[in-house]
């Protein structure tokens, strides 16, 4: 219990740090950020957008940084992330709310599949060290070195195109209304297969490798020798003795690498024009839509923190030692 409370405290601290960082990043720009933005876009920003920017940067009132900071927190706690000006006058929270389910669905499902599949393969590779499985390691290294987005481009070139089953962009058939019905769900699944496969291929090798290395390390422990000496079946020793113990560092590794995975999947979304947060971030960056960018960063960070907390709970359930103290 104490362990969990410590973790929660740490994540709250991290959330505070991320929010503060989010507050200061636009203010680090030298000079008047709004003015430089207006001059850069020469008349292409509407007056409303300028106003929303001034509010974002706290330039509407003559406040010092501390008052702006308090105001910023006040807005955040009311769920107000400002107004997006690519989708003016839609508030950022609405824009994010529309795209969040797509990302959570795509990233969540593929990450979990990739973790379990990769870990299972890693158990096999680590246990059968020295067999042909070792020959696959360079191949997985190569696959994990390919940038996610490039693999996505290749996947589109190879599998998508006119007349193909796989659509090359979008999250669902244009013309359908997002709803849980028999038209929309199959279309959404059809659109997500290719992006999901891309993420799976590039992210799985990391799990295979780390699990293999842990298995190799664990399999020389004394308790494995004892288990063998007891005459337990190979399978039982591999799964209940070696894999169970090797899994723990992989679970904590899972929590730590989530940030990287999320970063990678944002790119896959961009390549496939998938209507999730990554694509939204891409559009926001293109349009210099700071309120939207900041909102997306905040949501991504907080989601990663929540996922980390879940991984910690899983760790707690898996490792009895943490429960004892």
């Amino acid at each position: 219990m104490r362990f969990l409370l410590q973790r929660v405290a740490f994540y709250l601290f991290t959330a505070w740090a991320a929010i503060t960082l989010n507050f200061f990043i636009p203010r680090m720009v030298p000079g008047d950020p709004v003015q430089s933005l207006i001059s850069r876009n020469q008349g292409r920003i509407s007056a409303d957008a300028i106003e929303s920017l001034r509010v974002l940067f706290g330039l509407d009132k003559n406040q010092n940084v501390w008052e702006q900071y308090v105001d910023y927190w006040n807005q955040l706690l009311h769920g107000d992330l400002g107004l997006s000006f690519t989708f003016f006058p839609a508030p950022v929270s609405t824009v994010i709310g529309d795209s969040l389910p797509w990302t959570v669905g795509l990233v969540g499902i593929t990450t979990i599949i990739s973790f379990f599949l990769g870990t299972a393969l890693g158990v096999g590779a680590g246990w059968r060290r020295g067999s042909w499985v070792d020959g696959l390691l360079p191949a997985t290294t190569f696959l994990s070195s390919i940038p996610y987005f490039w693999l996505g481009l290749v996947a589109i070139a190879l599998f998508a195109g006119p007349g193909s089953f796989f659509p090359s962009s979008g999250g669902y058939e244009p013309g359908l209304v997002p709803a849980f019905d028999q038209y929309f769900i199959p279309s959404a699944i059809q659109h997500s297969i290719l992006p999901a496969a891309t993420i799976l291929v590039s992210s799985m090798s990391g799990w295979i490798l780390s699990m293999r290395n842990m298995m190799v390390t664990v399999s020389s422990e004394d308790y494995i020798t004892v288990a063998h000496a007891k005459g337990l079946s190979e399978r039982r020793v591999a799964l209940s003795y070696a894999a169970r113990n090797a899994l723990l560092p992989n679970v904590s590794g899972f929590a730590l690498s989530l940030g990287f995975i999320v970063g990678g999947t944002l790119l896959v979304e961009i390549v496939f024009s998938y209507p999730g947060l990554g694509y939204q971030l891409f559009q926001a960056v293109g349009a210099k839509d700071y309120p939207l960018m900041q909102g997306i960063f905040l949501i991504i960070t907080i989601s990663v923190l929540v996922a980390n907390l879940l991984a910690d709970v899983a760790y707690l359930l898996l490792d009895p030692r943490t429960r004892k103290s």
Partner: peptide
């Protein structure tokens, strides 16, 4: 340690994207 853990958990790529896009 707290500082490095914070940097470890915050997704790096979105942060880099945002910081770089703000700098012209």
């Amino acid at each position: 340690s707290a500082l490095s853990n914070v940097f470890l958990v915050i997704p790096a790529l979105p942060l880099i994207i945002i910081v770089t896009s703000i700098v012209e």
